[in-house]
């Protein structure tokens, strides 16, 4: 039976949905439940990864260290993972303390064309004897040849897996099949997929990815995640099992963990709102949604127009200030005068 490793970023990607206000108490409770279910990897921290707490992308309610300590002291079986974007996260200030605290896996992420930026971080993690994965974010923005090339770089730095991240929920199944197949043909390490639900493709794309050879699939409880939410974990697991894959996860306990997440973590369940569809179609990072809505209101412009303008410019995470620029330009066009 083919094995799929499930990685659960509920306590990381979900952080976007509540403006990074997860508490250590919430982390402990969810970790206890998901650990019982046998989910092998649990990711914890700020939505943009360790070290990302900032005015630009959102200040965390609790420090990375407190959240990770809470997770580490609760998880008995699952590996503890962190998302790490070089630039936000530095080796000395963020990765080393995280590893010292007992983090097992560091997922070193970058925009899909910038694998070079992950070299030092991946190398450091491997030198410490821990697992390093490479993550290519906003993967819909690059052609398959570029993705393969960037993934090869990550493998050469020592990444033990390369994850294709559909940050904007923009992929359709045919492209996923092509990309994952090409990566599996080329790489010697695990290939993974992280989906978002903007176009309702979270589960569908994940299944296609598994069929094309991906061995690590991400999913979050009740879709808890940025924008329209992620691939829904408690649906993903039984569907994979039904298709003949083995995840090693206890279904009932997984459902219990998802119920707990709904009760303990979610202020409102992520759903595919109209603006999320626009985010997916325009290919803009799901995590921009709240910022776009707020700024569009402030400038009295249609957030859908802002999203499409941002999509035309190929804006990526870290360029949140461009939202203001586009909203301002639309406002000027609409009113014919500056604010």
């Amino acid at each position: 039976m083919k094995k799929i490793t499930i990685s659960d970023p509920t306590l990381r990607d979900g952080s976007h949905a509540i403006k990074h206000q997860l508490t250590a108490e919430q982390v402990s409770r969810y970790c206890a439940a998901i650990d019982k279910a046998g989910v092998p990897i649990v990711e914890v921290g700020h939505g943009n990864g360790i070290g990302a707490s900032s005015i630009q992308v959102g200040l965390s309610g609790e420090s990375d260290i407190k959240l990770l300590e809470a997770a580490r002291s609760t998880l008995k079986h699952a590996k503890l993972g962190v998302h790490c974007i070089p630039g936000f996260a530095t080796i000395k200030k963020h990765i080393k303390p995280a590893l010292d605290l007992g983090v097992d896996i560091v997922r070193c992420a970058c925009h899909c064309t910038e694998a070079d930026t992950t070299r030092n971080h991946i190398t450091f993690v491997r030198e410490q004897g821990k697992q390093a994965f490479g993550v290519l974010m906003m993967a819909h923005m690059a052609p398959v040849d570029i993705l393969v090339e960037e993934a090869m770089k990550m493998e050469s730095y020592g990444a033990e897996a390369v994850i294709i991240m559909d940050s904007a929920g923009a992929f359709l199944p045919n492209r996923i099949e092509t990309i994952i197949s090409r990566l599996c043909d080329t790489l010697n390490v695990h290939v993974g997929y992280h989906g978002h639900n903007n176009l309702g493709m979270g589960i569908g794309n994940s299944i296609v990815a598994a069929g094309a050879g991906a061995t690590i699939i991400d999913g979050t409880a009740r879709c808890f995640g940025a924008g329209a939410g992620n691939t829904q974990l408690e649906i993903l697991v039984p569907v994979l099992e039904k298709l003949g894959y083995s995840t090693g996860i206890d279904f009932y306990k997984l459902l219990d963990a998802a119920d707990l997440a709904e009760k303990e973590l979610l202020q409102s369940a992520p759903r595919v709102k109209s603006i999320s569809v626009v985010s997916g179609l325009s290919g803009v990072f799901s995590g921009f949604t709240k910022h776009v809505e707020r700024i569009s209101k402030e400038y009295d412009v249609d957030p859908r127009d802002v999203f499409f303008k941002l999509g035309e410019r190929g804006i990526i995470a870290g360029q949140e200030d461009m939202i203001i620029e586009e909203a301002y330009a639309l406002h000027q066009k609409k009113t014919g005068k500056p604010l």
């Binding site: 083919k2 094995k3 799929i4 599996c184 043909d185 695990h190 598994a210 050879g213 991906a214 061995t215």
Partner: peptide, 9 residues
Amino acid sequence: SQTLNRKPK
């Protein structure tokens, strides 16, 4: 050993 769901390479 890793279990990679693909042809040996």
